[in-house]
Write a protein that binds this DNA or RNA. Structure first.
Length: 565
RNA sequence: UGGGGUAUAGCCAAGUUGGUAAGGCAGCGGAUUUUGAUUCCGUCAUUCGUAGGUUCAAGUCCUGCUACCCCAGCCA
């Protein structure tokens, strides 16, 4: 495919409410340091389109205001995280065009600081060690409509708390035996403020810190500190963290951190026809219902990459949908539009026949074999030309012929003369069928005068068909993808099995498509337009020397088929 | 009367101090076309969840109501 592209993605000028917040802070000189945003994934899974949405927001703000962008692994829970995921996340971000450069950080690297800050809180009388069991803590917390009540350990002395907390760190207690809690307000209508736990005991090895620690900080306490430590100014996250903001601020205020970062929230983005929740994604993969995390039907970055979506089209899509505080469910057709738009200009147009039907041109000499020059792209002449061969036997698309054409059908039929793209007009002479009545071959004649490029204008063909020379083509496999999920609502239905929720038509494999010779050389991830069919890319996972596999990225728009339905 | 958030077309979404509803996707019509693609041209909200109110003027301000989303992990 084309030249190695620089990142020339046109970022749409989107005046979001987040930009306004940053601009106001800039005007008022709220921060003496430069703007800094961050993307803080927990390394417990693969990045998906929702992650890309979040990354794009923070990445663009930093870029737009000449600030910095940090990739920070929020790895404070040793039970869930793994190096495998950090590597994958970095790789996927780079692929998507969000390169964090050397600004890659790990929340777990700040464990000592979190500990020291906790000691400060204890000394201020703002945190205490609590011996209540998990179950008791839940009961004391109250419910959505009932306030909580104070823990009997709430009023321990500073000294006792300090000793106990040191003991927690030293490993004197078992997992779950004690926790450190922030002393805020058990009667707060905001449940997050009812003396939230900020450190818990976990005798587990951390993928990065090993067995150094047996106490681990909780998200609500660690996150604001991570941001502050790194000099983040604008900590942008999704809307469900809105209720956590008071705690975020509480932590920074109690610790008297200067020019504290501010958390601001944006609405979540969902896509139709696709599974975006990490939990469901994990289930699909675990149950083997899809071909791994990079299954082309999945909205993981790896899946989208394998499907053939380009980073440029993903970024363009992200720019198009905008940002708001409202939860959105964007129609996939928007994403598909971005891909078509990108590939339309960059992908060479080649010929491939998905469901081959042999056509014998009776008046074409048996041994003859001519070379035809065709353009690699209908509009971009700089993409050059190539030669394809034409001979007595070719393949056309089965569905391009109808013995009894329905109304409106303007492809090949007994009564229609059609043009073979880049070659000649052909006319039907005979239909050959097998015992079951299925058409197995067409016999035709061609008109030498109608050769493409000859300037022939005598007759207008009904249509132009794509084809492949039967004597000089290759076989390949095509995989056609469709929505994995038909109805969003089905996902939530617990009475249904995954098999019942998944669109059984979401993957169709065509084992024996015919591709023009040049396509046989296609490399993994290379992208093409199969004329009149759609955009395709070479599968980067299962393609081998012996077996070429093309993934359909997205079909071409088709006003004919649509009209029929 | 737990708390918080959000309501602008089928979908996404501008609309910032009140001045007469951007844009994109999808759709629909038509022109061009050696891809039923692309491109082009046209069309697509008398109305902003809803009911009132203030005003010369309201998507923007006020009041009530409704719908949907999030929160009761020692997850993030």
């Amino acid at each position: 495919m084309g030249k190695e592209e620089v990142d020339n993605t046109v970022e749409k000028e989107q005046s979001s409410f987040l930009q306004r917040i940053v601009e106001k802070d800039l005007e008022e000189g709220v921060y003496s340091r430069e703007i800094c945003t961050r993307f803080p994934p927990e390394p417990n899974g693969y990045l998906h389109i929702g992650s890309a949405y979040a990354i794009n927001i923070s990445y663009n703000i930093a870029k737009k205001y000449g600030g910095k962008f940090n990739l920070r692994f929020d790895d404070t829970n040793p039970l869930k995280e793994d190096k495998e995921y950090v590597d994958a996340i970095i790789e996927d971000m780079k692929w998507a065009g969000f390169d964090p450069g050397d600004r890659i950080y790990y929340g777990s690297d700040y464990f000592q600081k979190f500990y020291d800050y906790a000691v400060q809180l204890i000394e201020k009388g703002k945190a205490y060690v609590c011996d209540l069991s998990a179950e008791e803590i839940r009961q004391y917390r109250g419910t959505l409509t009932e306030t909580g009540k104070n823990s009997p350990y709430r009023d321990r002395s500073v000294k006792e708390n300090l000793d106990l907390f040191k003991g927690m760190k030293a490993g004197d207690f078992k997992t779950g035996e004690k926790v450190l809690r922030a002393k805020i307000d058990m009667k707060s209508p905001n449940i997050n403020l009812r003396d939230p736990i900020i450190f818990r005991i976990l005798h587990e090895d951390h993928y990065r810190q090993g067995d150094q620690w047996c106490i681990y900080p909780m998200y609500d306490y660690a996150h604001p500190l991570q941001d502050a430590i790194e000099g983040v100014t604008h900590s942008l996250c999704s809307i469900e963290f809105k209720d956590h903001r008071p705690l975020y601020n509480w932590t920074l205020e109690e610790l008297e951190l200067i020019e504290p970062p501010k958390q601001r929230e944006f609405g979540r983005m969902n896509l139709t026809g696709v599974v975006t929740s990490k939990r469901y994604l994990r289930e699909l993969v675990a149950e083997g219902l899809v071909d791994g995390w990079d299954d082309p039907r999945l909205p993981t970055l790896r899946g989208m990459r394998r499907r053939g979506y380009t980073p440029e089209s993903i970024k363009h899509f992200l720019g198009e949908i905008g940002i708001s505080k409202d939860e959105s469910t964007v129609d996939v057709s928007m994403l598909e539009h971005s891909v078509r738009e990108d590939l339309r200009d960059r992908a060479p147009t080649m010929m491939a026949v998905l469901n081959p039907l042999k056509v014998v041109i009776e008046n074409y000499p048996e041994e003859e074999n001519e070379l035809l020059e065709v353009q690699n792209h209908p509009k971009d002449l700089t993409m050059g030309t190539r030669e394809i061969t034409f001979s007595r036997e070719i393949y056309i698309e089965k569905e391009d012929f109808m013995e009894y054409p329905e109304k409106g059908f303007k492809r090949f039929a007994p009564s229609h003369e059609v043009r073979l793209r880049g070659a000649y007009f052909i006319q039907l002479t005979e239909i050959i069928k097998n015992e079951t009545g299925e058409i197995t071959e067409l016999r035709c004649t061609y008109d030498r005068e109608t050769k493409s490029g000859s300037g022939f204008t005598g007759r207008k063909p009904k249509a132009t068909l794509h084809w492949v020379d039967a004597k000089n083509c290759e076989n390949a496999e095509a995989r056609l993808y469709d929505k994995l999920i038909e109805e969003e609502e089905l996902l939530k239905d617990k009475t249904l099995s995954w098999e019942e929720k998944i669109n059984t038509e979401s993957l169709k494999i065509l084992k024996n498509i015919k591709i023009e010779k040049a396509l046989g050389e296609a490399k993994k991830e290379e992208k093409f337009q199969f004329i009149r069919q759609g955009f395709y890319t070479v599968d980067n996972k299962h393609t081998t020397e012996e077996k070429l596999i093309f993934n359909r990225i997205v079909p071409l728009k088709d006003s004919w088929k649509k009209g029929k339905k």
